[in-house]
Simulated scan of single mutants.
Amino acid sequence: MSDAGAPQPEYHETLLPSLPVWVVVLAVAACFGLVALRPLGPAGAGVVAGVAVVAAAAALLRSSARVQVHQGELRAGRARIETHFLGRVAVVPAARMTALRGPQADARAYLCQRPWIREGVVVEIVDPADPVPYWLISSRKPERLVAALRAAGAGGAGDEPSDGSGQAHSRHTG
């Protein structure tokens, strides 16, 4: 039964792996269960172990991060922040995303990224009391996420957010 009067999120995305990632991870898990655990018991135990390892791997893959813009708040994974603390937001193409996850990363930044998603969004944190300069968020629909953030009150357009410093209004657990 759906609640027709309940406000819906302005944006919602679950960062699930793509089909090829699922296939590879589950195949490796099955091989591990069958090969590594088979010597520990009878033949049936290897199959049971293989199924158990595949089930555990599937559970881990399904527990992917969620990205949501709702009621003036951005949630990315376990972190959340009110949108009035957000400055510029920008779509990050695949090549730039790789650089921001690696050699050009700021150690203070909050990363909610998944390697199987090539593009993303960078969100500037403008709260002077927050030590986190920006959030880097993976997204399969980065243009829609940027539009939702701007509609929710995040700052204007810009090539890329700048750095900041101080104490946090963003919460990275919860």
Rank of each mutant, 00 (worst) to 15 (best):
C31G: 15
D127Y: 08
R144Q: 09
E13V: 05
A107V: 09
R101H: 01
S2N: 08
A109H: 01
A49K: 06
R96L: 04
D163K: 15
Y11G: 07
R108E: 06
G158A: 06
R96C: 00
T98S: 15
Q8T: 15
R80Q: 10
L145Y: 00
L40R: 04
P103D: 11
G41Q: 04
W22P: 02
V23W: 05
S63F: 11
H12N: 09
R80T: 13
S162L: 14
E10M: 08
S63T: 12
A109N: 02
R75F: 01
A148K: 06
T83A: 02
A154K: 05
R38W: 13
L19G: 06
Q167F: 13
D127I: 03
R78D: 10
P42V: 06
A52W: 12
D3F: 15
V89D: 00
G174M: 10
S63W: 15
A151M: 04
S63Y: 14
A157N: 10
R38L: 12
V126W: 05
S63I: 10
V51C: 04
G158S: 02
E143L: 05
L15V: 09
R144A: 13
V67N: 10
A29F: 13
S138T: 05
V126L: 07
E82R: 14
G41T: 11
H12R: 12
A52F: 10
L37Q: 06
R88G: 03
R171P: 00
G41F: 03
R80H: 13
A129V: 09
D163M: 15
F85C: 02
L111W: 06
P93W: 01
R140M: 08
D159L: 05
V48T: 09
L74M: 02
G120R: 00
D159E: 09
A105I: 09
H169Q: 10
A168P: 01
A27H: 11
T173K: 13
Y110G: 05
Y134G: 00
A30F: 15
G102R: 05
P131S: 08
H169V: 06
A45Q: 15
A55N: 05
G174S: 13
H70W: 08
W135V: 11
V146K: 00
V28D: 01
L111R: 09
F32A: 14
H172Y: 11
P9E: 05
R78W: 11
M97F: 07
A129P: 03
Y11K: 10
D130K: 12
D127L: 08
A56L: 14
Q104T: 15
Y134D: 00
E82D: 11
G156C: 03
P161T: 00
H169N: 12
G44M: 08
L19K: 10
D127F: 04
V48I: 08
G120V: 07
G164C: 08
P161F: 01
L37E: 07
Y134H: 00
S162M: 13
A107P: 00
R144F: 10
P42E: 08
R114L: 12
V47R: 09
